[in-house]
Design a protein around this nucleic acid. Sequence first.
DNA 1: CTTGACCCTCTAGCGACTAGAGGGTGCATA
DNA 2: TATGCACCCTCTAGTCGCTAGAGGGTCAAG
Lengths: 136, 136
Amino acid sequence: MSEKLTIGKLASATGTKVETIRYYEQIGLLPAPARSTGNYRTYEGEHLRRLSFIRRARDLGFSIDQVRELMGLADRREQSCMAVDVIANQHRDAITRKIADLTALAGELDALIDSCSRNTVADCRIIEALGPSDPC
Amino acid sequence: MSEKLTIGKLASATGTKVETIRYYEQIGLLPAPARSTGNYRTYEGEHLRRLSFIRRARDLGFSIDQVRELMGLADRREQSCMAVDVIANQHRDAITRKIADLTALAGELDALIDSCSRNTVADCRIIEALGPSDPC
DNA sequence: CTTGACCCTCTAGCGACTAGAGGGTGCATA
DNA sequence: TATGCACCCTCTAGTCGCTAGAGGGTCAAG
């Protein structure tokens, strides 16, 4: 039940890099585990649970600060989960904006690329479009 | 014709921050200008032209390295602009991938948010979905 | 002559890791 | 017992593209 894990095992169990785990400990996202006689970190099931949570939230694009907040909320189990909903929705909105921005960008780039006649740089419409109105 | 510009004028003329211009000089993206007696940078029309090019390319999402490459290509005016086309298309592809990734993410988040019944954290499906299979 | 807007250099910080140097630990095998 | 190798440790610096701040100098107007 209470299996001990080395950092390497925890890393492969969660799909995280060893360095990233040490980084999470350093910034206080993952609690520091006990140490073995040889000064090796020894993780418990709880660490595995927390790190899995972190990984999934990060994979969904939540920032470290958002993850910290979500974990704080997850620990107050009797409270309303409205705050959780708020964070998720904020994140969803940010992604919506990013998609819109990138789509607009893609449109501009497409127009640029379509205009390229693949001749010399001197009459390349891409370079021209990037440069100032000066025809040089 | 050959108007001299202070860094502040160049900044407002191109919509760039003063610090950013100094940064571009530091990394060798914008050539170092002459200095006045009081050690002020004095920019010429050519600098304005180059910085405008940089700004537009950056606004289109090209990386600094890509901008460097594009500027190098723009200077070899007699050569084929195929290389320019390649860079633009690589960038376009990267954006396409980003949009696809974000769209998939948005779908996952939507499913998560829809499942929230707005009760207590203890039975919040968002927290549950983030956590491990352990029902705790 | 003083005020205030501008300029200078240098250094450190952001987010979220990643990479590397330089060294210690632990286990299996010869 | 020795040796090899995979793994672990700490500490520091690098990535990208800026941004912010400290601590100071310059210049033109009033």
